[in-house]
Design a binder for these strands. Structure first.
Length: 108
RNA sequence: CGAGCGGACUACGCGGUCGCGGCGCAAGAAAUUGCGGUGAGGAAAGUCCGGGCAUCACAGGGCAGGACGCCUGAUAACGUCAGGUGAAGGCGACUUUAAGGAAAGUGCAACAGAAAUAGACAACCGCUUCCGCUUUGCGGAGACGGUUCAGGUGGAAAGGCGAGGCAAAAGCUCACCGACGGGACGGUAACGCCCCGUGCCAUGUAAACCCCGUCCGAUGCAAGUUUGGGUCUCUCUCAUAUGGGUUGCCCGCCCGAGGGAGUACCGUGAAUAACGCUGGAGCCUAUCGGUGACGGUAGGCGUAGAUAAAUGACCGCGCUCGACAGAACCCGGCUUAUAGGUCCGCUCGUAUU
RNA sequence: GGCCUUGUGGUCAAGCGGUUAAGACGGCGCCCUCUCACGGCGCAAUCCCGGGUUCGAUUCCCGGCAAGGUCA
């Protein structure tokens, strides 16, 4: 399934206020049923300089991509990482997988 | 071998699988799919300068304000760079340097010190008057005249140092050094060097105000352009220069501004849109001119253009185990951050030949 | 991305190149009191950091760092 980008400020507000929250060790996932599958990562200035922020975004997208195939129905996802010293691909991947399993979003 | 100086370069590499942003080609009505190729830096950073570019009822004058400041050159331009001069530091290679003017004027110089820009007081000496005494003299006080040496204070005390000179002294005189004025020579110039003269008067601070010289219109791609409607009619409010725009102010110049209703046509998307948006003062190689910055000529190259914003994950191999760090209109610089590695030129010390 | 502003005890803040760096609130110590409060006395500042100009810099100049504002 192809995931689009969430861009509009209105959409962000809607998901953050009405969406369901799921917490993992390294990040928080906010999601809402939607017509088209979409996702976004939230990495503000508190996470560091631009190099560091870009790295977090890449890791999150890649980890999400590795797990997204399991989700059957369309949802809008927001991924919000927690501030820490180091960020790892493996940690994000396991947390996202665990959240999908717990929230019963996986297909079948 | 040890210590050091200057300059240049590099910024993990290779192979696979999956994935991302532009571009090209093909397919498709379209969404999209497939293939190919391409995709961050030396600082992309800070936004400290300069320029291009764009807009402002063209950009005119004056004031204010700002920047720069040894000389010559380079450049589109610069506060940058190159070469040189002076000064300071280092044994040296070399490094640093906002380096015009203090006899245009104003301000400031705490504390200390007799005194802070120059007068007084104190001190030293001469002469004279008075007083005292141990009476060819010595001491004390006062008037007049000469002088600023020494001591102490200070960042700085009126050219320095040595000799002569004098009642005591002082560039009063002399040698050397410095300063100032004039001249010759060398250099495009800053300046250097030599000669002659003047006994010498002018404290510091201009990164205090300021003076002199040179330069600057303002605003910045969130600039701005296009579509978002156009034309006509009616009407309302403010205004006739005492308004609005143009640079902070003045002059000058330019101009009415905003809203509502109706009708005909176009359009249905209205801001998260498109353009600006990357081919350029471009990069590489060779050669010529120049000490050099740089410039000329010839050949070659095609080299990110995103907009919640693209480079990542995993596996294998190698090693020195990988620093600082991510384009956002574009260039030239400066400044700041930066693990390690490579190369070139040079200095000092020690030892050997 | 562009353009600006500000950094002084814990907080809010004054500060004409020479100050013992004002003042208020708060904190700590001592005195006063049987005790607390009030009151009195005292203490606590790398003037954000690094250079430079100057005899002397919180102040002037240059470069960093941090915080904040503003422009569609």
């Amino acid at each position: 399934m192809k995931y689009g980008k969430i861009k509009k400020k209105k959409d962000f507000r809607k998901i953050l206020s009405t969406g369901k929250r799921a917490y993992g060790g390294t990040l928080t996932v906010v999601y809402l049923p939607a017509k088209e599958p979409s996702m976004a990562v939230c990495v503000g200035k508190k996470y560091g300089k631009s190099v560091e922020r870009n790295r977090i975004k890449r890791l999150l997208r890649e980890a999400f991509r590795a797990q997204a195939e399991k989700v059957g129905s369309p949802y809008a996802f927001l991924l919000i990482p927690k501030v820490s010293e180091t960020y790892s691909f493996e940690g994000f991947r396991k947390d996202i997988g665990g959240i999908f399993k717990r929230e019963k979003l996986e297909d079948g």
